[in-house]
Amino acid sequence: MAEKIVYYAGCFANYYNPEIGKALIEVMKKSGIEVMFPEQKCCGMPMMANGNLKGAEKNVRFNFKSLALAASPGYDIITTCPSCNLMLRRESLAFFDTEEARFVSENIYDAGEYLMLLHRQGRLNTDFGKMPIKIFYHNPCHLKLQNITQEPVALLKLIPGLVVSRINTYCCGMGGSYGMKKNNYNLSAQIAKKVWGDVKASEADRVVTECGGCKLQIEAGTGIEAVHPLILLDEAYKSF
């Protein structure tokens, strides 16, 4: 593993919630890792979902080229959005398989997955301050699909005093912009009812999820803010 990583932020962290990207930079800095942020475009998944294959291809090729070049000295590529990660690691390869695509796919990690990898290698700074709070963790489908379900929870549990009181692996029904569309809105809300009910019943102090879409859906149905795990990690470092 290198002392630098290449960050793919995706649209959510870039345009809507830059705090996620800032938290990643701070968290990585604590373990002596510098974050590089090469030029990038939307991962293409929203375009695919709207049937814009050509637009998606343009973006995917741009991203693969830019990320592969930045990571070529042997750096790993990190994402903070589960859907971007899935798109870059797996989904786009079914349609746009190139050498650069395979290189990116083989060297890409979700941030939580990567931090746990660092921890297992004894390279993660665990100087976390105490946070005596109960957490409701929602595992997004696009992480579950990649079998990344245990790492985020294990990572959060490294914070002293923090208790993950509930782990939810059910779909929230948002699916990117799927649940925002008039045609799907009611269906999406029906699917979300289980997650909304569980969040409300959990009496957790904080709700945590990696996915921007899941965050919006949970907040819409519960009025409770949902944050990325990196935000909590950053807070824990700062309270040390």
Partner: peptide
């Protein structure tokens, strides 16, 4: 075709790229 009750995300004037 975006439902009027949809919870749309709020934009950030300063993007992560600009901040970086």
């Amino acid at each position: 075709g975006i439902h009027r009750k949809a919870n749309l995300p709020s934009f950030n004037r300063q993007t992560l790229r600009n901040w970086f």
